[in-house]
């Protein structure tokens, strides 16, 4: 029985091939955008978690500060509530880090500056709870001997807000497209139903059950949804893989690790398949209810 419905569904699909292609295309494009949006969303979530774990407060101390004074400040900060760690970076260490970051190319330029190192001494403070970073930064600000405090929080929260906007725009787009795809599918099924109305009439006369008559059309609709999901899934997975490989698995600007391909593929597969089938079934049911009088 299942075999027959599937066979008939495929037959329908091939018979009105142009409408099928259009419907599959609509679903595919919709899910391609949805999938791309999801890829960004998944990685944004990953990023925010990663960055939250990396959040630190850079505390710049005043110039010409003395070692005992530094020790006192370190002690004071360490005794504050909600502090996980305090690390002291002297101006010399800071210079070396800068040297490494900038690289060999500008070594000579730096070489001349090493005598006049104007970098401040620095404390790197981490809050026990990343959410408290800003609060901790504020408390440290008032400690005597502290010149400037930079929590980096603003950059992160701005970035996250930007990504959220991006995601919402994507989802709104997808919602509109889903409705379009649904109507296209239901239209395709409508055409199939009309082209087979004689067959349907005879099926009814000889005593086929309503569901027996409905299944091939529903199968056709589901196939449209399935193929429409499979195409963008394949494209996105392959595309993501090639980006992942090219970047070596790390996002270049914020240097957070990208989600591995397999994890992304699994999530995408589930979501896209479900939505594809749902759109197919819903579009199918719409036209079956409207045009298949059984």
């Amino acid at each position: 029985m299942v075999e027959r419905h599937l066979r008939e569904g495929v037959k329908n699909l091939i018979r009105n091939s142009w409408m099928s292609v259009a419907s599959v295309g609509a679903v595919a494009i919709t899910l391609l955008i949805l999938g791309a949006t999801l890829l960004i969303a998944f990685n944004a979530q990953q990023m925010s978690q990663y960055v939250a774990g990396q959040l630190q407060v850079n505390v710049y101390l005043k110039q010409q500060i003395t070692t005992p004074e530094v020790q006192q400040i370190v002690g004071e900060v360490q005794n504050m509530p909600g502090i996980r760690s305090v690390q002291y970076v002297s101006k010399e260490q800071g210079f070396k880090q800068l040297e490494q970051m900038i690289g060999n190319q500008y070594q000579q330029v730096l070489g001349g500056l090493s005598q006049a190192n104007t970098l401040p001494d620095k404390l790197i403070v981490k809050a026990a709870n990343p959410q408290d970073t800003v609060m901790v930064a504020k408390e440290i600000q008032v400690v005597p001997g502290v010149d400037k405090v930079d929590s980096g929080q603003q950059v992160v929260s701005r970035l996250l807000a930007f990504l959220a906007v991006l995601r919402n725009i994507g989802l709104a787009f997808v919602l509109g497209l889903l409705v379009t795809a649904m109507f296209l599918i239901s239209n395709t099924i409508k055409i199939t139903i009309f082209s087979r109305r004689r067959e349907i009439e005879i099926m009814k006369l000889v005593g086929a059950t309503d569901w027996f008559i409905r299944w091939p059309f529903l199968t056709e609709a589901m196939l449209i949804g399935f193929v429409g999901a499979a195409i963008p899934f394949t494209l996105l997975t392959l595309g993501y893989r090639s980006v992942f490989v090219r970047l070596g698995g790390v996002f270049p600007i914020l240097t957070f690790p990208l989600l591995p391909v397999s994890a992304v593929a699994t999530k995408l597969f589930g979501v896209m398949l479900l939505i594809g089938l749902f759109v197919g079934i819903w579009g199918g049911i719409m036209s079956i209810r409207k045009f298949l009088k059984v």
């Binding site: 029985m1 027959r4 004689r198 067959e199 009439e201 005879i202 099926m203 006369l205 000889v206 005593g207 086929a208 059950t209 027996f212 008559i213």
Partner: peptide, 21 residues
């Protein structure tokens, strides 16, 4: 008659059996 034009005589008759499962 109400026969299905794309099906052979045999298939038209067998159709009545197939569609009732």
């Amino acid at each position: 008659f109400k026969l299905l034009p794309r099906l052979t005589a045999y298939e038209n008759v067998a159709f009545a059996l197939e569609v009732i499962g």
